[in-house]
Nucleic acid binder design. Structure first.
Lengths: 87, 87
DNA sequence: TCGAATTTACTGCCTTAACAGTAAAATGTG
DNA sequence: CACATTTTACTGTTAAGGCAGTAAATTCGA
């Protein structure tokens, strides 16, 4: 029943893994992402209260993409397409 | 080049779509997720500074799951498996 | 159309994340 | 083993999110 803490903890490790392979320090990644070094540290440590803009900024630098899917995703896609082609 | 604001904006609509189909009000969803009503409102509006625990709590209620994948995801899975079977 | 329910928007208070600085602990390289 | 680099951990300050309350705007059903 993977809870939030576990998901974020795992995500932190994923970030760490990518950063290491990229040969970057936390500070370098922080600078690239435009966040503070403490925030990178927190993300990698699995802190669950970081803001999504900070998290996503870091993920973007590491080319980690995020995908959301719910039971109504297909219906949403259709509805969403209709919305764009409105008047 | 879908940026962070766009991603979160779209995510907000996805949450809204699921909530509506589920026949819940923002307050009901907020209570279920254990967050404030303002937070649900913010998420649906695409506010990019909400905290991930708040966001994920809401997503969990709507059965929207989140998937992260980077260029090293496969390598990470292997490494991760090794870690669990350590000593 | 009318009224109830819901959403939007704004408020102020309280809590706390973001941040840079710093120092200790850990890591790794010669 | 040293030495340099990096990470961990803690600090105080500043800025801002989380929240409930409220009221206006909007939506929706009878």
């Amino acid at each position: 029943m993977t809870n939030i803490v576990q998901i974020i903890g795992r995500l932190g490790k994923l970030v760490w893994f990518h950063r290491k392979k990229a040969g970057l320090t936390q500070i370098q990644l922080a600078d690239l992402a435009g966040v503070g070094k403490s925030t990178v540290y927190d993300i990698e440590k699995g802190k669950s209260t970081v803001q999504i803009n900070s998290l996503f900024a870091v993920l973007a630098i590491m080319n980690i993409d995020v995908k959301f899917s719910g039971p109504l995703s297909a219906a949403f896609e259709k509805w969403s397409a209709d919305q764009s082609s409105d008047k």
